[in-house]
């Protein structure tokens, strides 16, 4: 896969798995086109995504629809799939475990830090994907491979089934697509 496409794909998933944002929500159709173009998956996935776009036209309606799914899925209380790798990989189920620290050091070793004004935990799914996008963008394929192997894939193997099982519009389909792209399954 060429550099630009990989970067775009990582960015697109980073955008989806970060907290719902007006710009991402507005451009959801374009992301779907990108995925349809680059990732082979069942027609059902894409049709469900497009159905969501039709049901919730771009704007506040769509944003709120995304929030409705995002909060119980990732954010508050009985979350279905906490978006932090430490929760899965450190076994005690809490955030900011060793995995977060290792990921943060990985970022640091490649010259990236977490923004101080919009701080997020280093092992948030969206952050890891954004990091890979940056690596892909600058062609650091060794680092991409190493990060995928030691951090992203173990994390995805734990979290994506949960997101898919939640059967929440957009997120389940995005997880399906991310799984087939990164974990080679569908």
């Amino acid at each position: 896969m060429e550099q630009e496409t990989a970067e775009e794909l990582y960015l697109s998933f980073a955008g989806i798995f970060q907290r719902p944002r007006p710009d991402i929500a507005r451009h959801l159709e374009e992301l779907i086109d990108l995925w349809a173009q680059e990732i082979s998956s069942s027609e059902k996935v894409f049709s469900e995504l497009r159905e969501f776009c039709r049901a919730f036209p771009a704007g506040e309606v769509r944003e709120n629809a995304l929030w409705k799914e995002y909060i119980p899925l990732f954010e508050t209380g009985r979350v279905e799939a906490p978006p932090y790798a430490s929760v899965y990989l450190d076994r005690d189920g809490l955030v900011l475990g060793c995995e977060a620290e290792e990921v943060r050091k990985f970022y640091l070793s490649l010259g990236y830090g977490l923004r101080s004004d919009q701080r997020e935990l280093p092992d948030h799914l969206g952050v890891e994907l954004e990091f890979l996008a940056r690596l892909a963008g600058r062609g650091s394929w060794d680092a991409v491979g190493s990060f995928r192997k030691s951090h992203l894939r173990p994390f995805l193997r734990a979290i994506l089934p949960k997101i898919r099982a939640s059967e929440r519009p957009v997120y389940s389909q995005a997880a399906e697509l991310l799984a087939s792209w990164q974990l080679g399954q569908c």
Partner: peptide, 13 residues
């Protein structure tokens, strides 16, 4: 969107 204000990472010089 993601490398601008919305991003979470920043390149350290």
């Amino acid at each position: 969107a993601l490398y601008g204000t919305g991003g979470t990472l920043v390149a350290l010089s």
